[in-house]
Each structure stands twice: as structure tokens, then as C-alpha cells.
Simulated assay, not measured.
Amino acid sequence: MKKKAISVLAVSALAAAPALAQDGGALQRCRAIAEAPARLACYDAIPLAAPAAPAAAVAPAVPAAVVAAPVAAAAAPAVPAPVVAAAAPAASSQFGLDRRNPAAESQQVESQIVGTFEGWDARSLIKLANGQVWQIDDGTSASYALQSPKVKISRTMLGAYYLEIEGAKRMPRVRRVQ
């Protein structure tokens, strides 16, 4: 998570570099101010240029609004969050795969395990009726004797996936492999 936040900040800094280079005198003026609050206000007043097209093509793994919100909350008025429509049935087939826009992805998928489910070990593969294959990712193990249990895989706010199996008491963390 930290690496993603750092990469978002690095992209933001690279996008701002042309504007700062154009107004190098403003940086020098701000650097010369001894009082911290006044110096910060000087830096905040420097206008930033819009990001260049190549920088905009790079989609950050974490939405910029999430990373920048705590920093920008004091300096700028709140911007309403984008409304995300419900995921279409086609999006269900991509649930859990490497994605470029996690906000547009559905937050869970439901299916079932066909046949007898005897449980899992660390790194076990679980094939669902919808064709998806998930791997146990948390090193846990459990034994069950369930016949074609229904399952629900949910995505948490931080991007982890958990497998809820009907009739099982535990929910292992999983990752999609196919």
C-alpha cells in the first residue's frame, strides 16, 4: 500500500515539475522565508500546471482523491466523490484479476464449488462453477465435508479478497489465479 501511495505522489510531483521549473523565482522567494507558516503559505500559492498527457495515461493503483484527500482537505474545498454505477454482469468475469480501475469493479462475486468440498490447505486452488480459480493466500488450512457449497468472494477496502463458504466457519484470504 505504501509503495502505491508513494508512486501516486511521485507521479504528482513529476506532473508539477514543469510548472515549478517555469516559476523558479517563486521557489527562491518561498525558500527565503524564515517563518514556517508563511513559507508553507508561499509554497501553497505557487500555481501548478495540469499534468501532461503521458502522466495522465498512467492510472494509479490507489485513486488520487484517496491519497490526496487528507492533505488537500485543509487547503481546498471538498470535491464530491464520483458516483460509481453497479457493475455489469460482464464485470463479474473480471472480478479479482489485475485491474486498472478498482472503483469500477464490483465488490463481490457469488458462485459455488461443484461437487464435494473437503476444505483447504495453504496455497490450495479452489475452482468455482463460474470458471474462476482462486488460491488460498493466507497460509491457513481447514477440513470440511460440504456438498456443492455456495461461496461469496468479497473485496475489502484495502484490496484483499476473502472467501466465504456456506457451512464453513472460517473465511480464508484468497487471490485469483485464473
Rank of each mutant, 00 (worst) to 15 (best):
A19C: 05
V177F: 11
P18M: 00
V11C: 04
A21R: 01
A104Y: 07
A26M: 09
I153M: 01
T116Y: 14
A45K: 11
V79E: 11
A5S: 14
I153W: 02
G139W: 05
A69S: 12
I126A: 07
K4D: 15
E110D: 05
A73K: 13
P89W: 04
V109E: 06
I126N: 06
P63L: 13
A160D: 14
A57C: 10
C42S: 08
S12N: 06
P80V: 12
P51F: 02
K2T: 04
K169Y: 03
Y162P: 04
T156S: 14
K150D: 01
L9Y: 02
S92E: 13
A49S: 13
V8G: 03
L125T: 09
P80W: 11
A160G: 04
A68H: 02
W134D: 09
V79N: 02
A103P: 00
Y43Q: 04
A32M: 07
V133A: 10
S7G: 06
S154Y: 00
A56H: 09
L128K: 06
R170P: 00
A104K: 11
R39C: 02
V177S: 09
W134L: 13
R31F: 08
Q28Y: 01
A34R: 04
G139L: 07
A64N: 02
E105N: 07
W120G: 03
V83C: 08
A57E: 14
P47N: 13
R170T: 13
V177E: 13
P63Q: 13
I46S: 02
I6K: 14
E118H: 05
A75P: 01
A75Q: 14
V67N: 12
Q132W: 05
K127N: 06
S106Q: 14
A10F: 11
A76I: 12
A38I: 02
S92F: 10
A69M: 09
A72G: 09
R99F: 09
A122R: 09
A168P: 12
Y162W: 07
V114D: 10
Q135V: 07
Q107K: 10
L128A: 01
A122Q: 11
S141C: 04
A145H: 07
